[in-house]
Simulated assay, not measured.
Amino acid sequence: MWLTLGRRIGGLIIVMLLVATMVFFLTRLAPGDPAALMLGDQATPEDVARLRAVYGLDKPLLVQFGLWLKEVASGNLGQSIFLQRPVTQALAERAEPTFFLTLFSVSIAALIGIPAGVASAVWRGRAVDQIVSGLAMLAANVPSFWLGLILIQLFAVRLGWFPVAGYGDPGAPLADRLGHLILPASVLGLVNSALITRFTRASMLDVLNEDYVRTARSKGVSEARVVLRHAFGNALIPIITVVGLTAALLVGGAIVTETVFGLPGVGNLVVSAVLRRDYPVIQGALIVVAAVYVLINLAIDVIYTLVDPRVRT
């Protein structure tokens, strides 16, 4: 197990290096000069050149990449050009809404998708299966921004149950701020529950046809015990995989939802940085998101060994 884990960590390091390379050079390919954007239309070419020199943007790309990679390796993501503070500080200030939004969204998606997928597999071909499959197909094809606007109009504007947008006053209690995440988390949870439902159904159907399940039924074991212990327990690995991947995708994929609901999260910060060509913020945010993604994948591998002893060998 430890040898396999070591290999996985080595592979993740290589992946992070490739991600860093792609992030740096793809960012530089985007049109626009951050120095020119910062100084405005009235700036002279000399002013732009002077500011570019201050931030090292006048150096060759390979030299910039080497210097940036050295700083990243030491834990320094650089200084934001527009915010005039360290990128790590800017990300930390925006991390709370994104973290809780991801956590709540994955929880909602799992609480909907896993029971729905199990029920659909147990009653395969019946009305329950058809209804669940139809709703999952519908949820998978609904744009998150459209669903967000519908929920805002219904539950925030008409009924007044939830805030329309924002994350509340920074000095407000945490519970009050988290109340602003109910609608956006519901949007992401409903949309992403479709994939979990379909994976859970497929995994359960594979297991329900196994010999040990038929043997348990022939011995008179109750259907609930057969489904929950014998079938569901052995179908967990694909389910854990899809839930983990959903969490990883939500970390970097909640940008549209954060924009619709006006949440001051990492996604909103990245959008602003892209519009301003704030290279350090873009690079730092993408590196952090990629690191979270690979760490979640590593955690999934570790959970495998706890759920299925056969993976340890």
Results as ranks from 00 to 15, higher is better:
R225E: 10
V227H: 09
T257F: 08
A185C: 03
L306C: 11
Q84D: 15
Y304S: 10
R198G: 02
V242P: 10
A185Q: 03
I152P: 11
A185S: 12
V221S: 05
V294P: 07
I182S: 03
T257I: 15
L83I: 01
F261W: 08
P115W: 01
A248Y: 04
R50A: 13
L250M: 15
G117F: 01
Y279D: 04
T102P: 00
G189R: 09
R225H: 10
V207Q: 12
G220S: 04
L101H: 09
T200N: 11
P238A: 03
V19S: 14
V132F: 05
L306D: 03
A119P: 00
S186R: 05
D41K: 15
L228W: 13
L69D: 00
P309L: 02
P86I: 00
R177K: 13
I255F: 09
L228T: 12
E71L: 02
S272T: 15
L39N: 11
S74E: 13
A248E: 08
N209W: 01
K219A: 04
E210Y: 00
A95R: 06
S218W: 01
N141H: 02
L62A: 12
G220P: 09
H230L: 02
T21Q: 06
F145N: 13
G75S: 06
L159F: 15
A156T: 05
L298G: 03
R310A: 05
R8F: 07
T215E: 01
A127H: 07
L3R: 15
R8W: 04
I182R: 10
A235P: 12
Q283E: 15
N297Y: 05
G160C: 08
P60W: 02
L151W: 04
L39R: 14
V274H: 05
L195E: 13
E93N: 14
L188S: 10
A20D: 07
F162M: 06
T259V: 02
L83P: 00
L236P: 02
E93S: 14
Q283M: 14
G267K: 11
S203W: 09
R52C: 01
M1Y: 14
R126L: 02
G117Q: 07
A20L: 11
R310S: 11
A285D: 14
P34C: 02
L67M: 06
R52N: 13
A216C: 08
L269F: 04
L67V: 07
P163L: 02
Y167G: 08
G10N: 09
D301C: 13
V256Y: 03
V260Q: 11
V207S: 07
H230C: 04
A35W: 04
V128E: 10
P163T: 03
G253D: 08
V243N: 11
L275S: 14
A95W: 12
V256F: 04
L77V: 01
T21D: 00
P143L: 03
L306E: 04
G220Q: 04
A247K: 09
P184S: 10
D301E: 15
G134V: 02
L39C: 07
L61T: 02
V288Q: 12
E210I: 00
Q79Y: 11
L286W: 00
A90H: 07
S144E: 15
V274A: 14
L228Q: 05
A20S: 12
T200P: 11
L298K: 11
E210A: 15
P309Y: 04
E71P: 00
